[in-house]
Every structure is written in C-alpha cells, then in structure tokens.
Design a binder for these strands. Structure first.
Length: 307
DNA sequence: CTACGTCAAGTAACA
DNA sequence: TGTTACTTGACGTAG
C-alpha cells in the first residue's frame, strides 16, 4: 500500500511543479523555462516525498503548460527527454507511482466534436509525459465519465466510441473515477467492465452520489472496482477524503479524519489485492503526514522499497 | 509589497 | 438567465 496526495506540496512552498503563464505570454522561450523549472521541482518534491514515506503523487496538469494547446509549438518531450527519462528512472528505482487527473474540460463524450478532439489531444499529451519518462502503464491518467446528456446510455455509448479513437498506448493508462454530481459508482463500474478500463473508487464522491448503491457495503464496491484492474495496470487505486463540514457536499476537508481512516483500514483488512490510496484534501502532504503514523501501523503500508 | 481581477477550455446544478 | 464549482489557485498588473 502506497499513499499520496495531489499536485501541491504545502510543507515546502518553494517546491512547485505547476508553474504556468497566461496565454498571451506563452512564448516558446517562456514555456521552455517553465517546463524546465517544473521538471526540476517535480524531482525535488518526489525526493521529499520519499524521505517521508509518501510514494504516490498526482502531477498537476501544468507540468507542461499548454501541452495540448496550439500555442505550445515545442517538441518538449524531445527537448526535455534527458530530464524526463531521469525522473522516470528515479521513480522506478524508488517504487513511486505517478498519475495525472484530467481537468474539467476533458470530456470524451461531449456532444461537440471539437470538445472530443481537444480531449483526445489532452489525454495524448499527458500520456506523452509518462512515455518520455519511460514509465509503464501502471502510471495512470484519471478521468471522469463526462457528460450525461441526453441520458446515461447514449452518453456512455459516445464515451466508448471516443475510446476507440484513443491510441492504444494512451488508452492503456486511462482509469475512470466515479464523481460527485453526474456519474455514480454503478455507472462507472458498468462502463469499466464494458471497456476494460480500470475503475478508481472515490469514497467521498460515493458518499455524496451513491446512486443505486447507497445500501451496499463499501467493501463490496471496492472489491468490484478492484476486479477491473489487470496485471499491467498495477495495484488498484482509490481516492480517500473527508467532507469539509462548512462547505458544499463533496468539498474536500483540510485534513483526513483519523477515525474515518481507521475504520476504513479495518473494514478493508480482508480486501484483495493490496491497493494504493490517494488522499484528496486541502491540507495536501501536510494532511497525509498527520495520518502517517496511523497508516504506518497497517501491515499493508510500505514506506520504501526494500533494497 | 499587497490586493485583486483574470486566466484555454465545458457542463450541470442551483439560485 | 446568470452564477458556481470542478484536478489545482496562480499569474500579473495596478496601486
């Protein structure tokens, strides 16, 4: 079991891998500088994570600013191949696992062809980062079910049709996550079973939008989601977070409620196989560090690769 | 230095 | 019909 956090390292504010710019300032020179700084920052963040026993990290979409926009005319995956390959080698040696999460505009099943095309470009650009890092398909790109209009059945059919247009090497990295407003777990599980894509189960999203499975024990849903993961996908991943009591349903709390996490760890004691936990909270790595003692007490937790 | 308006992009729920 | 939120606030100009 690895644990991790998303995009931003709060405990070391100078360390960043999501420097970006606005479109009007996005010259090749500027973009090149930003990529160089971001790749350097990513390496430092990963090394800091390693020192703390955190081996899962979601890379922000701005690692390569405007990576799927025509303004970015760089062959960045070639220009920065040495840096990317070195990062990938370090990641493999230390047993870390990276991921991307698509932004809200990446919608494979949009009713607008232009949006589908942009989405395909976006997924391809993200996969290109992992390919340049020479990391295998266990390093995933997470996306949601997308739009629902005019109904689930036809929207999912469009999703499957768009998936046929995704290059195999990109498709091999895709995983689909239940969200908190459109696609509940049962829809994503069905979609994943039909397409062969693995499912990431998100606990808070499920609590907010349980769909037809409000009464089903979460462990059963976890096992169903885990069954969609193949050997080449690496261990199943889940998203775990707590509800912010002062904000809208689905809003991530600053931290992770220890009792909630303990109960979850106990409840999943007999799930197979082992899995990785991505914590989504405002407190980022600081929040994960707070519950690390709790995690370290779990026999499934592995802080470092034994060499 | 700080404050705050703006930033590539779509969709759906809410008022 | 307009506003809000989402994977994530950061960028950049005005004062």
């Amino acid at each position: 079991m690895r644990v991790g956090y998303a995009c931003i390292c709060l405990e070391c504010p100078g360390l960043r891998c999501t420097r970006t710019t606005v479109l009007r300032n996005a010259t090749p020179e500027r973009l090149s500088d930003l990529i160089r700084q971001n790749l350097s920052g990513l390496g430092e963040i990963l090394r800091l994570n390693e020192a703390r026993g955190i081996r899962l990290f979601r890379i922000g979409n701005d690692l390569v600013p405007f990576s799927s926009h025509p303004i970015n005319t760089l062959f960045w995956w070639e220009d920065f191949q040495p840096e990317l390959r070195a990062l990938g080698e370090w990641v493999r040696q230390h047993g870390h696992r990276l991921s991307f999460h698509t932004n809200p505009y990446t919608l494979l099943n949009s009713l607008r062809e232009e949006v589908v095309e942009n989405s395909l470009r976006d997924l391809t650009a993200l996969a290109r980062v992992f390919e340049a890092m020479e990391l295998n398909a266990s390093h995933k790109i997470i996306l949601h079910g997308g739009v629902r209009a005019p109904d689930f059945d036809s929207a999912e059919a469009r999703f499957e049709a768009a998936l046929e247009r995704v290059p195999d090497a990109v498709r091999a990295r895709l995983v689909v996550e239940n969200d908190d407003r459109v696609y509940p777990a049962e829809r994503i599980l069905g979609l994943c079973r039909r397409t062969g894509l693995p499912m990431v189960f998100d606990t808070l999203h499920h609590a907010v939008l349980p769909g037809e499975w409000a009464e089903v024990p979460v462990v059963e849903l976890l096992n169903a989601a885990f069954s969609t993961w193949g050997a080449a996908d690496g261990p199943p991943k889940i998203h775990f977070s707590s509800q912010d009591p002062d904000r809208r349903p689905g809003a991530h709390a600053y931290g992770i409620h220890p009792e909630e996490l303990s109960a979850f760890l106990v409840a999943t004691q007999n799930t197979t196989p082992d899995f990785d936990i991505m914590f989504e909270c405002k407190g980022k790595d600081a929040a994960v560090v707070e519950v690390l003692p709790l995690l370290a007490a779990d026999p499934r937790y592995v802080s470092q690769v034994s060499s």
